[in-house]
């Protein structure tokens, strides 16, 4: 478990602790998530950041018990005081949509091309609320208006292919909001969108979050999105949380070499064009070839001999934590020494 000071006064809305998720494959059992834990309080925005294979999307699916072919091998997912692994299927269906809703990167895969968007929003509302079709349609019009689709009553008859990518994502947000959930999980919601549209959709999510008093779990690889949206950041690498902390501090003063390397690998408007980018050598290890000890150690420029042992999760000031030997208390002299060249 990864407690953090800010949350200790209140009971969190969502608590994920020591999560391990396994999938059976032809090559045997693999762990997509090895050790991920974080908390989300009411109305808070938590960003789960990582590259492909970090386990961030699997974690999001695990929260909703939507792991197709995977299983939660260890850990707890506690929603509003109840352990979701102990909840029966019909109760879980109620929690999904009503309490926790989710949107994905590609709305086209979530929308049915054969039904009008109006029918799909009405279906989502009536699945959870015993109201008439007319009332549900009125609510659908209201929702489409809230997500910024002009001329909502006419647009109810539109089919997904008639909408742009940005509008489809707005429709998905409308469906997610149908039952006014307390938590919205958004998995790369703007990755497929053009930059100016991305900004519009993020602003929309932020506005609706305030209006609906929702908590938001934002799964993303984009540090720019994190900087704009997140209160709290959870950085994942190879199925583990490597660092977490408040967004402002984590982005300006990272406490794990991976977070630090990620931030320097991204070109910014200030990046010196005459120098190579601060690339991280190598690639994220495959799930069945995890290095022993610290999973980032083969790519880490600070790696030294201790890193072949699993690093402790070190608690730092302000509720922050880092899974790194460098942050472990009372480091030896050799631990302080930084090797000159990259181990890649």
């Amino acid at each position: 478990m990864w407690p953090n000071a800010e949350h200790e006064q209140t009971v969190p809305l969502l608590r994920v602790a020591d999560l391990r998720v396994e999938f059976d494959t032809a090559r045997g059992t693999v762990e997509a998530v090895n050790d991920i834990g974080f908390e989300v309080s009411a109305e808070q925005t938590v960003a789960i950041v990582g590259e492909s294979g970090s386990g961030k999307s699997v974690t999001a699916l695990a929260v909703l018990q939507l792991l197709d072919g995977g299983r939660i091998a260890n850990g707890q997912i506690v929603w509003d005081g109840q352990d979701l692994s102990a909840v029966d299927k019909s109760r879980m269906r109620g929690i999904r949509g009503e309490d926790i809703a989710m949107i994905f990167q590609d709305p086209m895969t979530s929308l049915d091309p054969l039904y009008s968007i109006g029918d799909q929003i009405v279906e989502a509302i009536r699945l959870h609320r015993k109201i008439s079709k007319t009332e549900a349609r009125d609510r659908a019009v209201e929702l489409l208006g809230q997500v910024g689709i002009p001329d909502a009553r006419t647009r109810l008859r539109a089919y997904p292919h008639e909408l742009s990518g940005g509008q489809r994502q707005r429709v998905m947000i409308a469906i997610a909001l149908a039952c006014a959930p307390r938590l919205l999980i958004a998995d790369e919601p703007t990755t497929a969108l053009d930059v100016t549209i991305e900004a519009q959709v993020l602003e929309l999510i932020r506005d609706l979050q305030r209006q609906y008093q929702m908590a938001l779990v934002l799964v993303t690889h984009d540090m720019g999105v994190v900087a704009e949206m997140a209160d709290w950041v959870v950085v994942c690498y190879a199925g583990q949380v490597v660092e977490q902390g408040p967004a402002g501090k984590l982005l300006t003063d990272p406490q794990h070499p991976y977070t630090e390397a990620l931030l320097t690998a991204i070109p910014t408007p200030e990046t010196d064009k005459s120098q190579p980018l601060g690339a991280i050598g190598g690639a994220v290890p495959a799930l069945h070839e995890m290095p022993p000890g610290c999973r980032f150690q083969p790519r880490c420029r600070h790696a030294w001999q201790d890193c072949t042992q699993p690093p402790p999760v070190v608690r730092l000031d302000g509720g922050r934590s880092s899974r790194c030997w460098l942050r472990a208390p009372a480091p030896t002299e050799s631990r302080r020494a930084e090797p000159e060249q990259e181990l890649a």
Partner: peptide, 19 residues
């Protein structure tokens, strides 16, 4: 477009205030 450039700087105002 220039205003829509993402930045990992948490002190920068969000893009939607600039676009």
């Amino acid at each position: 477009l220039a205003a829509a450039i993402a930045s990992a700087d948490p002190h920068r105002p969000p893009r939607w205030d600039r676009i």
